[in-house]
Computed example of a mutant assay.
Amino acid sequence: MERPVRHGGGGGSWEEVRGAVAGNGSCVVYAAVDDWVPAELHAPELAADLGPDHARLVRMPASRNRDRFVAARLLLKSAAGAVLDARARELELAYKPGGRPYLRGIDQLDVGLSHTEGLLVVGLTRVGRIGVDTEPADRRMLELGTEHQACTPHELEALERVPPERRNRELVRLWTLKEAYSKAIGQGLRFRFTEFGFGPPGGPVRMLRPDGTPAAGREWTFHSWLVDDAYTVSAAVHDPGFGEGTPPLSDPGSSAS
């Protein structure tokens, strides 16, 4: 998996998304919320574009959360349609218990979805399952108790070795990786984050047991990116056919633009 593909606002293209999935099996797409919010939320064609989600839309009060809800689903269906060579409105987005999205009647493409503030993130994979998560890179988490709710003993020790000015961003990275993994397995926040951890940045991202020993096998790959120096985006991909001769995904530590 390469760095995320920007779509909208003058960047990215559906050809790039199709090529990324064809070449790598998986792709993460991101876009600004404002680029995907329809000008008219009561337009008749929006009902066809959203499908069953339109009923949820009409019950939602006007808010930024409603904007993100609509924009995220339009981006997901458009990205999936580009990969599947189908019109977005021909795809029906449904949800498993716990809220994990999937495309009804389509088993050759798994999808993931996340959004925060002004950013939308969609994950697409043909190889197995995918989960994605995003948070503002500077979201305050440190010294609020979050680290003790989200980190293993090994991660807490590692955090103490991170320079203070980078410690909060590292906690955000760990949080998004755990969210992405728990979404991929359909557990969300029901899965205790203190039961699994991740290694430091700068190399292949590995899942670790609470004591810091390796946990998940090579069928799981994990990736984190810093987008526009403002958002942390993470993805977890499960490939049941992952071969021993194929190198795991690595964390490039780059900012997508």
Rank of each mutant, 00 (worst) to 15 (best):
residue 98 G to E: 03
residue 21 V to G: 06
residue 198 F to D: 04
residue 247 P to H: 08
residue 199 G to C: 13
residue 231 Y to D: 04
residue 205 V to P: 08
residue 223 H to R: 08
residue 188 G to K: 12
residue 64 R to L: 15
residue 207 M to A: 04
residue 241 G to T: 15
residue 90 E to H: 08
residue 18 R to A: 10
residue 193 F to Q: 09
residue 92 E to D: 09
residue 59 R to H: 13
residue 113 L to V: 04
residue 140 R to A: 15
residue 194 T to D: 10
residue 216 A to C: 14
residue 155 E to C: 13
residue 211 D to M: 03
residue 120 L to P: 08
residue 89 R to D: 12
residue 167 R to I: 03
residue 111 V to P: 00
residue 77 K to P: 06
residue 61 P to W: 02
residue 161 R to H: 10
residue 52 P to G: 01
residue 225 W to R: 00
residue 106 I to K: 05
residue 234 S to D: 00
residue 62 A to Y: 12
residue 123 G to D: 10
residue 227 V to N: 10
residue 95 Y to T: 09
residue 241 G to W: 10
residue 15 E to G: 02
residue 199 G to V: 03
residue 11 G to D: 09
residue 235 A to L: 11
residue 231 Y to A: 04
residue 37 V to A: 07
residue 32 A to P: 13
residue 230 A to C: 12
residue 142 L to F: 05
residue 144 L to I: 02
residue 136 P to M: 14
residue 31 A to Q: 06
residue 6 R to H: 10
residue 188 G to N: 08
residue 200 P to C: 05
residue 36 W to Q: 01
residue 91 L to P: 02
residue 6 R to L: 05
residue 112 G to S: 14
residue 85 D to E: 14
residue 39 A to T: 15
residue 241 G to S: 15
residue 78 S to H: 02
residue 64 R to H: 13
residue 115 H to D: 01
residue 18 R to M: 05
residue 65 N to A: 15
residue 178 K to T: 07
residue 238 H to S: 13
residue 206 R to F: 06
residue 112 G to F: 04
residue 73 R to D: 09
residue 198 F to N: 01
residue 108 Q to Y: 09
